[in-house]
Simulated scan of single mutants.
Amino acid sequence: MGVDSHLAPLLTELGAVVPGAGWYFETSSMDALDALADEAAARYARTIGQLARLAEGVRIP
C-alpha cells in the first residue's frame, strides 16, 4: 500500500498526475493473475483515456 500512501502524494506534490490507485492482489489469487492484470489494465486505460480527453481542452500558454 506504499504506492497509495507514499508515492502517489509525492508525485502529486511534484506536479504529476497519478492516473489511478495502486494495484494489489492476494498471493492466493496467483492462479488468476492474468485475468486480474487484464482487469486492472482496462481500468487504467479508461482513466488515462478520460485524462487525455480532459487534456485536449486545456491550453497551456
Rank of each mutant, 00 (worst) to 15 (best):
A41Q: 01
V3L: 06
A32W: 10
V18Q: 00
L7W: 02
R53I: 08
I48G: 02
A45S: 15
T12F: 07
D4G: 06
A45I: 12
L7Q: 06
M30I: 15
D31E: 12
A42R: 11
Y24A: 11
L11C: 06
E26D: 14
P19H: 00
L51E: 13
L11T: 05
G49L: 10
R43W: 03
G49M: 11
H6P: 01
Q50I: 04
A37S: 15
V3R: 04
V58A: 10
L10S: 06
F25D: 03
R46E: 15
R46S: 14
R53N: 11
L14I: 02
M30A: 15
Y44N: 07
L33S: 13
Q50W: 03
P19Q: 01
A45L: 15
P19E: 00
D34V: 14
E26K: 14
G22D: 04
G2D: 12
A55S: 03
L51K: 06
R43V: 12
I60Q: 08
G15A: 02
S5K: 08
A16G: 11
D38C: 07
L51H: 05
A35I: 09
A32P: 00
A55C: 03
P61A: 10
R59G: 07
E39M: 03
A45G: 13
T27W: 12
A37V: 11
S5I: 12
P61I: 03
L11P: 01
W23D: 05
A35T: 13
Y44K: 07
E39L: 05
A8V: 01
A55P: 00
V17P: 01
A8Y: 01
I60K: 07
E39I: 04
L36I: 10
A45R: 15
R53K: 13
S29L: 14
L36D: 01
P61K: 04
A37W: 05
D31L: 02
G20L: 00
T27R: 15
V17A: 13
A16R: 01
T27Y: 11
L33W: 11
L54I: 06
D34T: 12
P19N: 02
A45C: 13
Y44M: 08
L14D: 06
R53A: 08
V18L: 00
E56D: 14
